[in-house]
Amino acid sequence: MIIGLGSDLCNIERIRNSIDRFGDRFLNRVFTETERAKAARRPHTVAGTLAKRFAAKEAYSKAVGTGFKAGVFMKDIGVVNAPSGAPTLLLTGGARARLDMLVPAGHEAVIHLTLTDDHPWAQAFVVIEARPLPA
């Protein structure tokens, strides 16, 4: 069953301007080390890479119904790649705790994430599924 759905559209130039204006202070407050490293490996698309991840964090906060309050912080929502290469989320702190509160007993959370960009826009969709645990 679906227990959460969120989407976000982010302007890549807005992220580029925040990087230019605030530098590491912005990067370290919003993005995980893994996300910053991935962007650094893409020197021509740093802002686009980070904008997609910013959108994913926003989409997740909407999917769990809190926005960035109730202990859910951007840095606790990390975009990583599954072994298949598909993007997914690695949650820590309040972001993980909020998800755990939503999952019914006897179920596990499965997060589906899709990212796309077409300059100047980056977009993310998050679907949170509660899947019954095997008997």
Rank of each mutant, 00 (worst) to 15 (best):
M1I: 08
M1N: 09
I3Y: 12
G4F: 01
L5E: 04
D8M: 04
D8S: 01
C10T: 10
N11Y: 09
I15L: 10
N17I: 09
N17G: 10
S18Y: 09
D20Y: 10
R21N: 13
F22I: 07
F22E: 08
D24G: 14
D24H: 13
D24V: 14
R25M: 05
R25Q: 14
L27T: 12
V30D: 07
E33D: 14
T34K: 13
T34M: 06
E35D: 11
A37K: 15
A37G: 07
K38W: 11
K38S: 10
A39H: 06
A39C: 07
A39G: 06
A39E: 02
A39F: 11
R41Q: 10
P43R: 07
H44V: 09
T45H: 08
T45E: 12
V46P: 05
V46H: 08
A47Y: 03
G48T: 11
T49I: 05
T49F: 10
A51M: 07
R53V: 00
R53T: 02
F54A: 09
A56Q: 07
A56E: 09
K57A: 01
E58L: 02
E58Y: 01
E58F: 03
K62G: 10
V64Q: 02
V64T: 06
T66E: 08
G67C: 02
G67L: 08
K69N: 07
V72E: 00
F73Q: 09
K75D: 08
K75Y: 08
D76F: 07
D76G: 02
D76P: 01
V79A: 01
V80R: 02
V80C: 10
N81Q: 12
A82G: 03
S84V: 06
G85F: 13
G85T: 10
P87W: 04
P87T: 02
T88F: 05
L90V: 02
L91F: 05
T92F: 01
G93E: 11
G93V: 06
A95R: 08
A95N: 03
R96P: 03
A97W: 01
R98M: 10
R98Q: 14
R98H: 08
R98Y: 04
L99A: 02
D100W: 03
M101Y: 11
M101W: 13
L102R: 06
V103W: 04
V103D: 00
A105P: 10
E108Y: 12
V110E: 13
I111L: 11
T114S: 15
D117C: 11
D117Q: 09
D117Y: 10
D117E: 15
D118A: 14
D118W: 05
H119D: 15
H119A: 14
H119R: 11
P120S: 11
P120W: 05
P120N: 11
W121P: 00
Q123V: 12
A124G: 03
A124K: 00
V126D: 00
V126K: 00
V126G: 00
V127N: 01
R131I: 12
L133H: 05
P134K: 07
A135E: 08
A135T: 04
A135F: 09
